[in-house]
Nucleic acid binder design. Sequence first.
DNA 1: ATGCTTCCGTGACTTGGAGTCATCCATGAG
DNA 2: CTCATGGATGACTCCAAGTCACGGAAGCAT
Lengths: 253, 253
Amino acid sequence: MSGIASNPVEPPRYIRHQAPRPRSEAKRSHIIDAAMRHFAENGYHAARVGDIAATLGIAKGSIFQHFGSKDGLFFEVYKRAVRSFSKYLDAPADVRAAGFFDVLYYWLVRTEHMLREDWIPYRISLLGNYGTDLVLKREINRFLTTEDPYGTGAFVRFGLERGELRKDMDIEMIVSILDWTMERFQDALLTAELDPGLFRRQGEMPEKKEARIRQFLEVLQRAVGAVSASSVHSNRQIRRIAAADLVARTKMS
Amino acid sequence: MSGIASNPVEPPRYIRHQAPRPRSEAKRSHIIDAAMRHFAENGYHAARVGDIAATLGIAKGSIFQHFGSKDGLFFEVYKRAVRSFSKYLDAPADVRAAGFFDVLYYWLVRTEHMLREDWIPYRISLLGNYGTDLVLKREINRFLTTEDPYGTGAFVRFGLERGELRKDMDIEMIVSILDWTMERFQDALLTAELDPGLFRRQGEMPEKKEARIRQFLEVLQRAVGAVSASSVHSNRQIRRIAAADLVARTKMS
DNA sequence: ATGCTTCCGTGACTTGGAGTCATCCATGAG
DNA sequence: CTCATGGATGACTCCAAGTCACGGAAGCAT
């Protein structure tokens, strides 16, 4: 295509000819751990690769040898953080048995507690979603699409098989909507920074928060839930509203 | 409160005693324009303040004098970009008269065209939403909340007054859900253009896109729309599905 | 006009962190 | 013990954000 192939192409170097020694993998892992803490505490930009190295008592160059760049390091950190989260279907068996929307409820009410005891990976995912760079964000999206770390796809199929989700929609549309709204709702729940609109008022009112969760789930159920007896969320309040609505609809006709 | 007022406090300097001269405002405006182009073309990180200055034929220090920092400059750029977008209720009168969901439809189908003729501010808003820094993102959210540049609040009130939206939900919940899903849906719609890697399937299928828009709006209507004759979207397909659903619900009881 | 003051623009300079590389060293194979 | 390989090192380069002392321009007063 372009120039003349004057020199025979050198075989590309820096390709692993054999699996890395076990020591190397362990070190990588240590670096990722320390980096995760640093990124979580300082944010992406304020985190210094040199500081991470100093914390570990190793040379900065070593980190670059392993990960190539600060972006590359963060991407590994991000993947580990996200993989450490539970998948939807990891909910206890009795919750799963209760149904699709009960599983969502289960995870939403636990979000806050999980944050307190394990805030570091959550903060990392927040940085990956909003606080780094569009180029990196693109990599992250590719990762999320191919790996589906929350198991949204399987979870939606679960809901479809149980007849709790509408069958007349593209499944990708359901997955997307679930991903979008759950992500944003959880962000709003957890960080006043991101959504000052929805939760700014009630700093210390857990019951108000729970009401929001219920309302959100109810909206979600209307949006993508199938309309049949088995799909009605087992929670009393939601069932009550759905029933009232049904009456209203019936009267209308 | 804190220490002893040992020294009489110096009157703070660097406070504007009078409005900036008109020349200054014009220059600010020029800088913002050039910066917007640079950020849009290169992304936040790759954009160089020095390049922007060189493009304008002025000194780099001048930009810092006006905006304090690169972040500060970007924030001004972001505000201008977002303010340049239409508000929901800027739709033509006949579209407004057709109803809430028709207005949404109107804007969604136009998103693509608007992108082509005016891609720079869109790209800026994308950078502001995903590609800078959490600290800046926080400022941006505060701005979006206080200024409501898309007029979402007024638009939701419009829908409520027309009886097209549910009255048994907190209004902020509706606003948040509308903001979240519209933003993400538009991003998905548009980044398919900008970045064929993500949604590479329907690159050249406008009718598929329109089907997606209809499906999305239908979901949204189920989620937050009131159930009454006047709320049904005027689009035939949506009305048909809503009617079928009503029948199904009635049978169920 | 002449001086006075305040603001604006300038570009050389400082700061500081990402990324590099020649060299060293630890380890394993023969 | 020697050699070969690849990880570890840290001083070094590069580069862009941000600073500042200075000079000049524009308003203001006399």
